[in-house]
């Protein structure tokens, strides 16, 4: 435990007692991964980190204990295993939903409920791109050209994951707009079908 804490303090900001964006930047360079790498998001998920860009001591302990790492070297070695864990279907939904909530800004009282299109596109690419490359690419294209939505909420975010899992792609033969799909997906499918003809 002491060693885990020592590693924490080596990255933490002295005055706030947290690992802040600067600390994470340093951690990333020691781990030899980019700070926009999906593995950092996975690490945050493992720690159940609440605020984007910050790790608390409690979160740090929770994550590193679970990964059985008490130094940076071990942490680095644990990353491939973490990646496998996340990709297990039972964990992935949780991770995907976490990714959205992690990116919401604002404090607890006035927490945002939705994320702007530009950030959503980056997040999709990061969190879902390696699973559903083609769906994600098309959806990002669509989000960028459409003008009906400026933000995306959690329901729409989760709806897209369900879409990727349930709908034939690119055939779309089993997509039924009569069902309760979020409207943004109806519009997406309409756009895709128009493109295809």
């Amino acid at each position: 435990m002491e060693r885990i804490d020592n590693v924490f303090y080596s990255y933490a900001n002295k005055s706030s007692g947290l690992i802040d964006p600067e600390g994470i930047e340093a951690l990333c360079s020691d781990l030899e991964v980019d700070h926009t790498d999906v593995r950092i998001l996975m690490l945050a998920w493992k720690m159940k980190s609440e605020k984007q860009g910050y790790f608390t001591l409690e979160e740090w302990r929770r994550g590193l204990k679970a990964l059985r790492a008490d130094n940076v070297h071990k942490l680095k070695k644990a990353l491939p295993e973490l990646e496998k864990e996340v990709k297990r279907p039972t964990n992935f939904v949780d991770f995907y939903s976490y990714a959205f909530q992690y990116c919401l800004t604002g404090n607890e009282k006035e927490k945002q409920k939705s994320i702007d299109i530009e950030s959503i596109c980056q997040l999709l690419d990061l969190a879902l791109g390696f699973q559903f490359r083609s769906q994600v690419d098309y959806f990002i294209d669509y989000l960028k050209i459409q003008s009906d939505y400026k933000v995306i909420n959690l329901d729409q975010w989760m709806g897209f994951y369900r879409f990727c899992n349930e709908i034939n792609f690119p055939g779309l033969s089993n997509y039924d707009p009569e069902l309760a799909w979020p409207l943004i997906l109806d519009n997406f499918v309409e756009w895709l079908r128009e493109k295809q003809t």
Partner: peptide
Amino acid sequence: IKAIKKRIEDLISRDYLER
């Protein structure tokens, strides 16, 4: 029908409904 769906989406955002 689309307008209704849009309103449902909005009501979900505003925590009147959940899926």
